[in-house]
Design a binder for these strands. Structure first.
Length: 432
RNA sequence: GGACAGGUGGCCGAGUGGUUGAAGGCGCACGCCUGGAAAGUGUGUAACGGUGAAAGCCGUUCGAGGGUUCGAAUCCCUCCCUGUCCGCCA
């Protein structure tokens, strides 16, 4: 949620920021917000004057009654009775206007940071050369991960389709264990090396949580919703559960930054993705992911963003997987972000770099929606915190990357050194 | 799911219709006291919004939303949450 006061102070900066994102009618959108805000504030001045007079008169009534001055009390009571309708009407109008203003603001995306490159789509994303790691391995006639997994008899899309439909998979045996190993390895790295606190969070959440992180109300179509009387949403990412942990709270500055990590399933409807990545495990309705979330003060968030990206990259480095990092351009960023790094891992089977992590600084955008603030050592409330989230990493896609990058000429797949302890010492995966 | 009991400031806790935004305590901040500290003692200590150059003034908020009343933390209705017991259950 954008800050209405900041919009009032410098609306052109917001028009400019939204235009950079590719919003064609940014001027009109901000104009509508300002107009609604003006109507609301005009109402508040009138309403509050009436309320002040009512309060004053009511106090006088109390005094008059105490002094047994019934005549004065009766006169004042008549006056307040006259104000009653005006006030009740005004209060209703206030509620309506506040909701209308909130509804307008709720669907406006965050403003990109100054150092985010302009652009309409992923072709304008900017490589971060200093973060690039490794070289694509020279594998002749590389197989795709699903060819390898199916040949092993450990990756079964057909049975998954029978039971659940498309975009689901059964992993079996060593591949099932590999998923669990990756989750444990990632959690261990983030907790031990980067100070994240391991969390096992809810994966069914209320609407308010999804509003807080920005998935609702605009992106309802990407989500699954249960059908019971008080429905739940299935989280599309643990970002929702981890970030909303601090919703409606005022945190002490001394306890910041908070760093949370969790290994959870994620659920995405993938509406609008028909025909994309239809084969294999790249795009599923259900997948597992290790998520990173940081809650910081405003002055820490930019540095924390770099640190979080380091943590995510560290996993790929330990696995010795070639990857590159791009800064998403204004047109390719998510709704809540002010700046995003995507980490793209090399997939020999696809002969391409594919996204395996996305690390975003959301500034105060989510904090404002969640009502998460912090106070300084003196106890003074300082305003909204900053929130960041990143994949550290997408476990399904990491498994894909391992299969494709570690495939051997004999059809087996070597297990990266750092994972062998998690695989009971096993060094290689073969057909079972 | 059923039956009770509750939801008040950073925390605990008083408060059943009229200077109560809220006693008291804890915590915290500053001062006094002390060689220094503890103890003791004094003062201060909510958020959000409107208005204003500022000081300030005003409004809203006692789980949420409605209602009664001239006036609601206090009375009524609906909902949510927490605790305890029972039932069910991984």
């Amino acid at each position: 949620m954008l800050d209405i006061k900041a919009i009032r102070d410098d609306s052109s900066a917001f028009v400019q920021g939204l235009t950079r994102r590719g919003m064609a009618d940014a001027q009109a959108v901000i104009g509508a917000v300002l107009e609604k805000d003006k109507v609301l504030r005009d109402l508040l001045v009138r309403l509050q004057n009436s309320q002040a007079r009512r309060n004053e008169a009511s106090k006088l009534i109390g005094h008059a009654k105490a002094k047994k001055d019934e005549a004065q009390a009766t006169g004042l009571m008549a006056e307040v009775a006259g104000l009653k309708d005006t006030i009740q009407q005004g209060e209703q109008e206030q509620r309506d206007l506040e909701k209308e203003l909130r509804d307008l603001l709720a669907v406006i995306p965050n403003i990109p940071a100054a150092d985010v490159p302009n652009g309409a789509d992923e072709s304008a994303n900017a490589p971060v050369d200093a973060r690039a790691f490794g070289k694509p391995p020279g594998i002749s006639n590389p197989k795709q991960h699903f060819e390898i997994g199916e040949a092993f008899g450990q990756m079964d899309f057909e049975r998954a389709a029978k039971v659940s439909g498309s975009r689901f998979v059964y992993l079996k045996n060593d591949l099932a264990r590999l998923e669990r190993a990756l989750g444990a390895f990632m959690l261990d790295t983030h907790t031990a090396q980067f100070g994240y606190t391991e969390i096992s969070p809810p994966v069914l959440v209320k609407s308010a949580a999804l509003f807080g992180t920005g998935q609702l109300p605009k992106f309802q179509g990407d989500l699954f919703l249960t059908t019971n009387e008080d429905p739940f949403w299935l989280v599309p990412t643990a970002e929702v559960s981890l970030t909303n942990y601090v919703a409606d709270e005022i945190l002490g500055e001394a306890e910041l930054p908070l760093r949370f990590t969790a290994f959870t399933p994620c659920f995405r409807a993938e509406a609008g993705a028909a025909g994309r990545d239809t084969r294999g495990m790249i795009r599923m309705h259900q997948f597992s992911k290790v998520e990173l979330v940081s809650i910081t003060t405003p002055d820490q968030s930019a540095a924390e963003h770099e640190r979080m990206t380091d943590a995510a990259q560290e996993i790929l480095k330990k696995l010795d997987l070639a990857h590159r990092v791009v800064t998403l351009c204004t047109g390719d960023m998510g709704f809540s972000a002010i700046k995003t790094y995507d980490i793209e891992v090399w997939l020999p089977g696809q002969n391409a770099y594919r996204e395996i992590s996305s690390c975003s600084n959301c500034g105060d955008f989510q904090a404002r929606r969640m009502n998460s603030r912090f106070r300084n050592a003196e106890g003074k409330v300082q305003g909204p915190v900053h929130t960041l989230n990143g994949s550290g990493l997408a476990v399904g896609r990491t498994l894909v990357a391992i299969l494709e990058n570690y495939q051997q000429p004999d059809g087996s797949v070597a297990i990266p050194d750092v994972l062998q302890p998690y695989m009971g010492g096993k060094k290689v995966i073969v057909k079972t």
